[in-house]
Write a protein that binds this DNA or RNA. Structure first.
Lengths: 386, 386
DNA sequence: CAGAATATGCTCTGCCAAAGAGTAAAAGAA
DNA sequence: TTCTTTTACTCTTTGGCAGAGCATATTCTG
């Protein structure tokens, strides 16, 4: 309905359990306006007040702003190369329900059918409370929500179909009152969403410019600048794995030479060991990272150094003040912290040396992408909540 | 005073000469509100209406929104390694006055004194109309406005002094009514400001994610995402010259190895020719770029290829939809377009190949930094104009 | 040249979000 | 108990803006 209402709602989302008095102070609202806005939001079933958290100080106790028990919800959907999962997420980020299953077939049609069926049953349970959907996928998503995941054979898939199939039963999940604005669906690369999640609720909370890197089959990531995820012009932002920090003699499946991603994954470790490319580089890399065999440890350390050098380059160019590592990156950081740190520091330009931006493991682990999907869905929905 | 007024003012700035009717349509204002807001802004000496641009169609003619003849102004200041310049810029970006002079001494004290003196005389001429200052400097600027320009020997210089010395005569250039908000001064790296200028009024207008690169003594630049310049956490964003796209055997003055900047400047050309490092790499590079000697042309082409390959890496990682080149980069693009384009295309990942983001010369040339300084000063000032 | 068509600007009324002042309530401290 | 502190509620006022209706200025048409 108004700017201030949305701001208050957003505050209740980003800082779950914030007290009403604190919220009013943060927004610069008078007590009158706070009363007005909170009661309006409560009446609209958008916000509720919990009795109180005892603060210890004197004065009339305030209340905590929490999600309304019948308030709006979003679906957070994460599709990986091997399974899918749907969370029902309320204001503040708490998950009410979670369903998941492995893929029965790698075909998109089968995956799409499973996800749509699960979403429909959640629709039966939650009805019109479901107002938006956030979707994490292992590939790049164009601005018109078409997915390309070359490794999985999913090409030019229309992701809006996931929502529209579901919306046949009613006008849910649509921008209120104006269908021309399209459905409230946000779909993104898993690494971008993990970055968003780390910045909103993970290890990168409070960072000015956070860089998140995630190694799985390839190397992806995203930059989060003042809370905004940079998704690029075509939705292909954060493909840092295709920056030429690697060996120029190696040709990447993307068509270029020297891609960093080809130098920090399981394939790179196999190459260093003189072995053929493993069929499942992720599992292979995990095994090597926990190996005790000297040659394999050396390969892991070499890859770790390449990772550290590349991170330094990105920090130099982007001036991030925090770097979080997810997927295999977190494992590498745990297994070879010294190699990564040494190469990282050596690659930093002078201005960053006195206080190198910390390298941290992602706090949300494998939940990063789905958490980010929920966050982005809420970000999309919030301005539409009257 | 209100959101809509500021939006209208911003529109009048970003699209100089926009008609009143168009502006109302773009902001979704009714004619009543437009009358109200425009008359309020005109009364506050912030906006004026010019007779009309003949549109040809029928109907009552509208007016063009222009800067008020006694409205607020900003100072755009550009300090380079050899000279300084100050422009007085009105709403809409037009320059009213420009003063410039070469440095009499490379010492910061001397430079600062010259600039302050010139600013003071402009203050005498324009008085309280001067409300903000934008400053372009050849170095990195920390968030608390301290400058480091290692090449010039300017270390940890407090740039706010430029403003405060000037403000002793009154409360000008301060955030209105609340001095704790600090002076309305924005200071940035020249390459970042050139990027802002290209996005606002140059070759990158309308780009979703624009990448600007500027080669002079080093290689700098910036990413502009949806009109916002990414300055990094410490003001050192856009130092793409220190990403390791170059020869790992070359050590950069920054302390790292393989910095891209060491592979695309005049020093790199000299190295390729087996010559000692030139004292003035910029002039040297300019001479080689226009040389007809085969060996020198070959060196230029090699450097151009390295530039193209690096740009491809950045485009892969950042998903820019437009790249602008300034300084020597523009000269290289003109001198060796084929080499740059070939290396660029070869380095792009597959998704970008069908429609490679265009590489363009910066439209504003050497005026990029000072234009950007004016733009950023206006961006800073606009929300304060009641 | 006169009227029609069209686009725009102005005036007036009404609405609603929010600020502000004053009052009431709920807790700790003396 | 009584005072102080902090917060919430009520009521009034303000101001920006939407909307309807009228006025105005230009081009088109006959």
């Amino acid at each position: 309905m108004t700017t201030r209402s949305t701001e208050l709602l957003r505050l209740a989302h980003t800082r779950p359990g914030v007290t009403r008095a604190d919220a009013a102070r943060l927004l610069g609202l008078g007590t009158g306006a706070a009363t007005e806005i909170v009661s309006r939001l409560a009446h609209a079933s958008l916000l509720a007040e919990a009795p109180a958290p005892p603060s210890g100080g004197r004065g009339r106790p305030t209340t905590a702003l929490i999600a309304h028990p019948t308030g709006p919800l979003v679906l957070a959907v994460a599709i990986t190369h091997e399974d899918w999962r749907i969370d029902v997420v309320e204001l503040g980020g708490a998950t009410l329900t979670s369903v998941a299953a492995p893929h029965t077939s790698p075909d998109w049609a089968a995956v799409s059918a499973s996800v749509t069926a699960a979403a429909s049953s959640l629709r039966l349970a939650y009805g019109e409370r479901l107002r938006a959907m956030g979707l994490s996928v292992p590939g790049t998503v164009s601005p018109d929500l078409r997915l390309d995941a070359s490794g999985l054979g999913w090409h030019d898939v229309d992701l809006t179909a996931l929502l529209l199939a579901d919306a046949s039963s009613g006008p849910h999940l649509m921008a209120r009152g104006d269908a021309s604005l399209g459905p409230l669906l946000v779909a993104r690369n898993d690494a971008s969403l993990a970055a968003a999640a780390e910045s909103a609720r993970g290890a990168a909370v409070g960072a000015t410019v956070a860089l998140h890197l995630r190694i799985e089959a390839g190397l992806g990531g995203a930059v989060v600048d003042h809370g905004r995820v940079l998704t690029g012009a075509r939705g292909a932002g954060g493909e840092f794995g295709h920056m030429p920090f690697g060996d120029p003699a190696v040709t990447c499946p993307c068509g270029a030479q020297g891609c960093w991603g080809t130098a920090v994954d399981g394939t790179a470790m196999a190459r260093l060991l003189g072995r053929p490319a493993p069929p499942d580089p992720v599992t292979y890399a995990r095994r090597l990272i926990s190996s005790t065999q000297p040659a394999e440890q050396a390969a892991v350390r070499a890859v770790a150094a390449t990772l550290g050098r590349g991170i330094a380059g990105l920090v130099n160019g982007l001036d991030a003040d925090l770097v979080t590592l997810g997927g295999l990156g977190a494992d590498l950081l745990a297994a070879a912290p010294a190699e990564i740190a040494t190469a990282y520091r050596a690659g930093l330009m002078r201005v960053h040396r006195p206080a190198p931006p910390p390298l941290l493991q992602a706090a949300l682990g494998d939940d990063g992408p789905i958490t980010g999907a929920g966050e982005e869905a809420w970000s999309l929905l919030l301005p539409w909540l009257t």
